[in-house]
Amino acid sequence: MYGVSTIFWRRCTVGTSFMVVNRVFVALVLAAVATAAGSDFLPVVAGGGDGGAMKAVTQRTLEAANDAAKLALGLVGVLALWTGVMRVAEQAGLVALIARVMRPLLVRVFPDVPADHPAMGAIVMNMAANLLGLGNAATPLGLQAMKHLQTLNPHKKTASNAMVLFLALNTTHLTLIPARTIALRLENGSTNATNIVLPTLLATACGMAVAFMVTKLLEGRFKVMPDEGQPAADATVTDPKGVAP
């Protein structure tokens, strides 16, 4: 029992966590090329099949790279607007004010982040924007939060517990009004486009609760390794319960 779980956790926490993005990336690309190759080359040998998969993949690969650049550059305006507004809000003391109101709850959720830190303010603003369905506003606020969390992070290339928890809550955020989905449903002739609001809210709450619990359960298992040229990992980030100062 102990042996098996130890090996399992070693694989998951040391091997996979460092490599997972690299592996997923390579696996996706290889699987796509293999599938396309299969549906193009097998018919040549066995007869039948329509082919053209490789051509579609070639086209999509180049389009996707192009889309990525367009998407990022398309963000410049809104991103600049919000980082500008946030800078004013910060200087005016508004972010600190909101953070102070939310302090009792957030201190419990993010024990590693000081209550009056700008990261706390950015996290609250990001969550509020997500709740209102303001996706365009939420992203820059979230990036701001990550930047502030990075200043608290002793190992600059490794995610801190607070960052992972913030992202887990961010990707499962509660949405009051799924506006884009409702618009799509109306456009396609739905007679009751808004009936999805309540089930969406309840389902998101389930996802958020699970993401929170999974994060808290796993953070002690995924040890922080120091960056090259940095001193050994400190007790703060390897503390299994994440409650050390």
Partner: peptide, 13 residues
């Protein structure tokens, strides 16, 4: 912010 080791973030998400 240049994070390369994402630990349990993908699993939780």
């Amino acid at each position: 912010i240049g994070i390369e080791r994402i630990r349990h973030a993908l699993w939780a998400g």
